[in-house]
Every structure is written in structure tokens, then in C-alpha cells.
Amino acid sequence: MPEIGPEPEPQPQPVSESVPVAEPEAAPVAAPVAKRPRGRTALLIAAAAVLGIAGGTAVGYDVQAGRAPTPLPALSQPDLAYPAKALPAGKVPDPLPASQDRRVRTGGDLRKLLADRPAGWSDDDGSVPGFGDGWLGVDTYARSYKEEGPMYEYFLEYDIRRIAGATWKRGQYRTAETYLVQFGSGTVQGAQDFAEGQLSYMSGTEIGAGNDGDAIKGSGNGRYYLYEVDRKPGYLPSYHARATVYRGDIAADIHIYDTAPISKKDIRTLAERQLERL
């Protein structure tokens, strides 16, 4: 067998001088990006905002200065008390007499502000459980409402002070109830909120009278209502009328019940008589 020798080393091939060898192109390098000076821009924006506010304020003052003075609205405070006669010029006013000072009137015995019993009626102290000498507890009064729990919490939240009342009867079935609900004299207008809250749902049919009622003359905020008759099998028909009004820190809540129809005059008369005492 022929002897196998080492393989010859490969020889470099000659390169023609006329063909240039291309060098690999370098990858493009992105130009450096300078960071935006945030601090300077923020200062410019803040300065512009300050100048804008100052400029707007100056323009506003200039416009207001060129306008005619606007008169203030008239004060509407029906509960302010004044002397019956005007005092001579330069004389220092004396304290209001108790008959004209509302705080003395409402701060005394609240039962004295209840309207007198009308002619033809008699006292009916046993018709409302819980009445004692003309006073009624907050919990007892709250139970007269459909939602007694929320009403009790409402009275406590709105700083209820005390409740005075009177009950009368006429004939066999007609009864009348008058409640004076007094609230504290704090920042919350308790009597106004209570009365307006009651009036707000009276036009509804679920727990209200189902009508808009009529205004109590001279009150500016009170109304009286006649409910639809309530008929149930086996029972006499039930008629109901109600009036609600407030003055100062006292809200008056008046009801008439009967098995015969109640006229608007019946409830209006009781409401007007009670309003005169407040």
C-alpha cells in the first residue's frame, strides 16, 4: 500500500490589486441629547402663574371700582322684637317689657303659649298617653310618627328642648291635639327645619295628606291640610286634618280627628288661634 503522508498546507490565493477590499461600516452613533433644565422651567411657570393671579386681581378691582354700589338686600327677620312706640331722639332705650320680649315669653312656661280651649270643647287629658300636666316626653312624641326610631334620633340631633301640649274633645268622637315643640337656640334652626320637613312630605299619599293644603294666613310658612278619609271594613270612617307652622324656636303641630268630615274652617281656626299666641 502506498504510504500516506501529511496533507499539504493550503496556500494563500493571490488578490488582484485592481479590486479593493471593502471594510465593514461602523454602526451610526446617536448624537447626545441634552437634558432639559427642569428647575428653570418650573420657576418660569410659577412666576407666570403669580403674575396672572396678580394681574387678574388688579383687573377685578379696577372693574369693581368703576361700577355703581350695589345695595344690600333687606333683612328679613320676623322674630326681632321692637318697642311698641318709637323712642325720642337721643334717649337710651329701656329693656323691652316681658310682653314684648320674645325670649322672656318663650323662655318661661311653654304651656302658657298654648291657645285657650275653644268654646264648645272640653279637656281630654286621657286621649294621648304620656301627657303629664301639659308636658310630653320626646320619646312619647316620637312614637306618634310612623318612623319613631329615626324621629327620636332626629329630635336629639337637632337639640330639642321640650314639648308642651293640650288635647280637647267635642261631641262623641271629635278630638283635637296641639303640640308646641321647642328647640334649643343654637346654630341649628331646629323649629324651622322640623316644620319644613313635615310640610315637605304632606303632599304625598303614602304618609302625607295627598294634597298641597292651604296657607295659614299671617304665618308666611305654615299650612293646613285635610286628609283623605280612611275606610276599613268593620270600623267607622276616620277623618284627619293637620296644621303645621313655626315661629322662632317653636314649631306648632295641630291635629283634628273625627268619624265625620272635618271642614277646612275647623282646622284653620285652631291654627290661627295658636299662631296668635306665638
Rank of each mutant, 00 (worst) to 15 (best):
L80V: 13
L80N: 12
L80K: 12
A81R: 04
A81Q: 10
Y82K: 04
P83C: 03
A84V: 11
L87G: 06
L87A: 14
L87I: 08
L87V: 07
P88M: 02
P88R: 03
A89H: 10
A89Y: 10
G90L: 07
K91D: 09
K91E: 15
V92C: 02
V92Q: 14
D94V: 04
D94I: 00
P95V: 03
L96P: 11
L96K: 03
A98V: 01
A98C: 02
A98L: 02
A98D: 02
A98E: 05
S99P: 02
S99C: 04
S99V: 04
D101G: 03
D101Q: 00
D101P: 02
D101W: 00
V104T: 12
V104D: 01
R105L: 05
T106R: 03
G107E: 00
G107R: 01
G108P: 00
D109N: 15
L110V: 00
K112F: 04
L113Q: 09
L114P: 10
A115L: 13
D116K: 13
D116T: 09
D116G: 13
R117V: 14
R117H: 06
G120Y: 05
G120W: 04
W121F: 15
W121Q: 06
S122C: 03
S122N: 09
S122F: 07
D123N: 11
D124I: 02
D124P: 03
D125R: 12
G126W: 06
G126N: 09
G126Y: 06
S127P: 00
V128Y: 14
P129N: 08
P129Q: 13
P129K: 12
G130L: 08
F131G: 10
W135S: 14
W135P: 01
V138K: 13
V138F: 10
V138A: 14
V138W: 04
D139A: 15
D139R: 14
D139N: 13
D139P: 04
T140L: 07
T140Q: 14
Y141W: 14
Y141C: 07
A142D: 08
R143N: 13
R143D: 14
Y145N: 13
K146T: 11
K146I: 07
K146P: 04
E148H: 08
E148I: 01
E148N: 10
E148A: 11
G149F: 04
G149Q: 11
G149N: 02
M151A: 10
M151S: 04
Y154T: 07
E157T: 15
Y158N: 15
Y158A: 05
D159S: 10
I160W: 02
I160Q: 02
R162H: 05
I163Y: 01
G165T: 00
G165N: 05
T167V: 09
K169H: 06
R170E: 12
G171H: 05
Q172C: 01
Q172P: 05
Y173A: 12
R174N: 08
R174T: 15
E177I: 11
E177G: 14
Y179M: 10
L180G: 07
L180Q: 12
L180S: 11
V181Y: 06
V181W: 05
V181Q: 04
F183I: 03
G184Q: 05
G186Y: 06
